[in-house]
Write a protein that binds this DNA or RNA. Structure first.
Lengths: 152, 152
DNA sequence: GCAAAATGGTTTCATTTTAAAACCAAGCTG
DNA sequence: CAGCTTGGTTTTAAAATGAAACCATTTTGC
C-alpha cells in the first residue's frame, strides 16, 4: 500500500508547506486575501475560480488555520474570510514568487502590478537570502542537511 | 470558449509565477535540483513521483528555462538536468516556503531537514521583507498597486 | 563478450481532481 | 411579497494524475 501524495510526514519543511499550500489555487486565494479581499463572491470574481473549488479551498485554508471565517462584523448573515497570523506569515512566500515572476516572466517594458511599501509608495526591496552573519547567500553556498531517520 | 487555467497573461507576477511553477510537483523537483539531484531516476526515487509525470514536468521545466538538459559530462548516454540561472533564482521561494513550514508545520521538538550556510554550517537567516529604506515590512504595511489596463 | 540489470523514458488504463453549469436556501431590496 | 444577491452544493463532463507494463539503450558483472 503506497501512500499517494501526502508529504505531511516529510521531514523537509518545504515539502510539508507544499502539501498545505502547494496546490494551484491556495496561494492565489491567499494573495487576494493580502489584497484585502474577504468575501466568497469577491474571491470568485477576481480569480475566475469555479465556486465548488473555491468553497473547497476556503474550507481547507480555514482548516489549516491560514484563513479564519468570521461573521460579518456589520451583522449581516454572511461570513468574512480573513488571514490569520499564520496566513500573514506567508508574505515572504508571495513576495518571493512575485519578485521571481517580475524578473523572469515579464518583458522589460511590460506593465505589472506592484507590491509597494504603503508608507512611501516605493517597491518592496528585493528579498535576499542571508547567513546568520549577514553574508548574502546564493544557491551555490547553501546545502540541505537531512535529518537522520533515527532521530525521528 | 473559456480559457481554463492559464495566468500567463495576468499582470500579477505572482499569478504568472504560479502558472509556471505552481503545480504540485515542480517546486519539489526544483528543490531536489538545489540539493544536487541531476538524474531522472534520482528525482523519481527521492520524490516517489510517477515516471510519466516526472517526464512531463522535466520537459516543462526545461521548456521554461528553469532546468537545462545537458549530456552526461562523463560521456555517458544519459543526460543531466541542471538548474539554469533562472532556476537558481528560485532560491528565495524555496527558502520562504521552508521557513514558513518550519515555523508552522512542525511540532517544537520535531526534527526536520535544515538549510544551512555551507561555509559555517549555520541555518540560513530568516528572510525578511524590507522597504527600500530598510524598514521591516509586514502584511499590514504593503499594498498591491494594480496596473491600469489602459497601460497594457 | 555476453547475459543480466539499470536507465530513461513512453503507453495504457483506472482513479482522482477540476471545471462549468444548474440548482437551491436564506437574506435583503424595492 | 416578488425578485435579486450571496454563498454555497450537486451533478456531470473533461482533464490531470498515478501505477504498472512495456521498451530501447547502456552499463555492469563475470
Amino acid at each position: 500500500m503506497v501512500r499517494k501524495k501526502s508529504l505531511k510526514g516529510d521531514y523537509c519543511p518545504s515539502a510539508r508547506s507544499l502539501d498545505v499550500i502547494g496546490d494551484w489555487w491556495s496561494l492565489l486565494i491567499v494573495r487576494e486575501a493580502f489584497d484585502g479581499v474577504k468575501r466568497f463572491s469577491a474571491f470568485q470574481k477576481n480569480l475566475g475560480i469555479a465556486r465548488n473549488i473555491l468553497a473547497d479551498r476556503l474550507r481547507k485554508l480555514t482548516g489549516e488555520g491560514i484563513l479564519q471565517a468570521v461573521p460579518d462584523p456589520k451583522g449581516g448573515a454572511h461570513q468574512e474570510y480573513r488571514l490569520t497570523p499564520k496566513g500573514r506569515d506567508l508574505l515572504p512566500v508571495i513576495v518571493a514568487l512575485r519578485q521571481w515572476g517580475e524578473k523572469h516572466l515579464f518583458a522589460p517594458d511590460e506593465p505589472h502590478s506592484r507590491l509597494v511599501d504603503s508608507l512611501t509608495g516605493l517597491d518592496v526591496a528585493p528579498l535576499d537570502v542571508r547567513a546568520q552573519d549577514g553574508r548574502l547567500l546564493s544557491a551555490d553556498n547553501v546545502i540541505i542537511v537531512k535529518v537522520r531517520e533515527e532521530d525521528a
